[in-house]
Each structure stands twice: as C-alpha cells, then as structure tokens.
C-alpha cells in the first residue's frame, strides 16, 4: 500500500511540474527551465523547515515565492530571444542552477548532527513530515490538495479571458500586439506563474523524499516537464494530467521490470509518439470529439 501512496506522491509532484510547463507553452515559449525552478523551490523550502524551523505551509509558500521571483527575473532577458534560442537559454539556466547547488554548502548543527545542503552530497535529513508524525497517506493527500488547487486555478484561467490572451500570444504575437495585448506582461506573467507552481512542486518533492541533490534536477527532468504538456496536448490542463499519469504511472512503474533498459525505452517511445501523434495525445481534434462524446446529442457548452 505504501508503495502506491509513494507513487501517488510522485505523480502529484510531477503533475505540478507539467502544469508549470503547460502555462508557459501556451504562450508559445518552449521552456526547459522547469527543473531549475523545481530545484530552487526544493532547496529553499527545505532550508526553511530544516534550518529555520518553519512550519511546512509557509515554507512551501516562501519557496514558491522565491522561485517565482527568479522566474520573473529570467523572463525579462528571455524575452529578447525567441523560439529555439529560448530553449537553449533555459537549458543553460537549468544547468547553472544545478551546478550552483552542486557547489553550495550551508550547514548548521542540530544536536549532534549537521544539517543543510552540502554541495555534491546533497541536502539530507529534510524530515519535517516524519518528525511531525505525518503518515504517508496524509502526505499524499497534502500534495494532491495543492495539485487540485493548481489544476483548478489553471482550468479556470483557461476559461477566462486570460486563457484566451495566453493562447493568442502563443498563436500569433503580431496579431496579439495589434489588438492591444501587452506581450511582455503576458510572457513574463506566464513564466512567473510557472515558477511559482514548479517551486511549490519542488518544495513538496524535497519533503517527501527527505533527501535532494543536484543530480535530481537535470535536463532529463526538464524534458519530462515539457513532455507532459506536449504529449498531453495543449488544449486542456487535463491532457497534461493524463500524460503525467500515463508516463509516470504506466511507463515508469509498469516498465520497472525492464530495469536499466527503461530509460532507453523512454527515448524510443518519445520518438515514436512524436511521429504518430505530433499534436499530442489530447490534441484539439481529439478533445472536441471527447467533448461531443460526453455531452451527448444536443449537448451544449
């Protein structure tokens, strides 16, 4: 049972990663920065509960806020480059963050042991949940509570004018500008929101795994982050969620018996998926068909 709860925790945190990438991809910016945001949120929230003794909720909030600020800061120079240059810039950002934490030490004494991040060794003993008697189930529900919140917020955004504006920017920047949309504000806001969501995910990740290190926040993680919305299709947040469940739940766990060959299969599956369904699992056409299926004859909006 604990195994499935652990899996659910992973799914929840990856869902936040995917949603973070989703909102930026809507505006047409391809970002590989999510792993970097994740890392910042993880370290900040971890340090706040472990070193400063904060309660988990304000720690998560602070981690999310710090990440959002960093995201906002890098969004501005990122505006000066478009499209694929942005991919490279965000890859470099992610790597820079990882390397930063690889070289980052901040330890304090807690009783007889030292706690805090220790460069390449990572950050161990993030034991807020065990120390406060949280059961695995409670942690899992806690995580999914946040996921539900993020899903709700993004779903609502999709239905509001903000959602239409985000997508308009993603489709045609020139047309968007010409009808009064402030491109800078939209793109920076999207990146900032993404930073907040990914930072939150990172903070949760740090606490349920209790041990984080720079090696967890690699290009591969950033790839998963954008793979979820791309595989899931950008028409709906639920596509991203479905992709997370499919990739992490089915592929990662279901194919665990393959052992080391699993990673190889991922690569191959991604290539296959992109050739067979280039617009994602839940692209606009499929989404429309599903809607009609559920709405039934005479169903309306």
């Amino acid at each position: 049972m604990d195994f499935y709860l652990g899996l659910a925790q992973t799914l929840g945190v990856h869902a936040l990663l995917g949603l973070s990438a989703y909102i930026v991809l809507l505006t047409g910016q391809v970002t590989m920065a999510q792993a970097g945001f994740f890392a910042i949120g993880a370290y900040v929230a971890g340090m706040l509960t472990v070193i400063a003794g904060w309660h988990i909720v304000p720690a998560l909030a602070a981690g999310s806020l710090v990440t959002a600020l960093v995201a906002c800061a890098i969004a501005f120079p990122a505006l000066r480059v478009r499209g694929l240059m942005l991919v490279v810039a965000t890859i470099a950002f992610g790597e820079a963050v990882r390397l930063f934490f690889f070289n980052f030490d901040y330890q304090v004494w807690r009783g007889e042991i030292q706690v805090g991040p220790l460069g390449g060794e990572g950050f161990r003993q993030i034991r807020y949940f065990p120390e406060h008697g949280w059961s695995t189930l409670e942690v899992m529900l806690f995580i999914w509570g946040w996921v539900a919140l993020a899903l709700a917020a993004l779903w609502w955004t999709d239905r509001s004018r903000t959602g239409a504006v985000l997508r308009a920017v993603g489709e045609d920047e020139i047309a968007a500008q010409s009808v009064g949309v402030n491109l800078t504000a939209v793109k920076v806001s999207a990146m900032t929101a993404a930073g907040a969501i990914a930072g939150l995910g990172g903070g949760l990740y740090a606490h349920y795994t209790t041990h984080i290190e720079q090696g967890s926040f690699t290009l591969v993680l950033a790839t998963f982050a954008i793979a979820y919305p791309i595989l899931g299709g950008l028409s709906s947040v639920f596509g991203t969620l479905a992709a997370v469940l499919f990739v992490q739940g089915f592929l990662v766990e279901g194919l665990r018996f393959l052992g080391d060959w699993r990673n190889l299969l991922f690569g191959a599956l991604i290539v296959l998926a992109m050739n067979l369904r280039p617009r994602g699992l839940l692209d606009a056409a499929t989404a429309t068909r599903l809607k009609r299926l559920f709405a039934g004859p005479g169903g309306a909006r």
Partner: peptide, 17 residues
C-alpha cells in the same frame, strides 16, 4: 514542437544506449 521533442527523445536514446 514535435520534432524538438523527438530529438530530445533521440538524445536520451543514444545516451542510454
């Protein structure tokens, strides 16, 4: 986005191989 994603998949495939 599909070719980009595919080449990333290819990168992972080659690396892991």
């Amino acid at each position: 986005l599909a070719p980009l994603m595919a080449t990333i998949g290819m990168l992972m495939l080659i690396d892991e191989s």
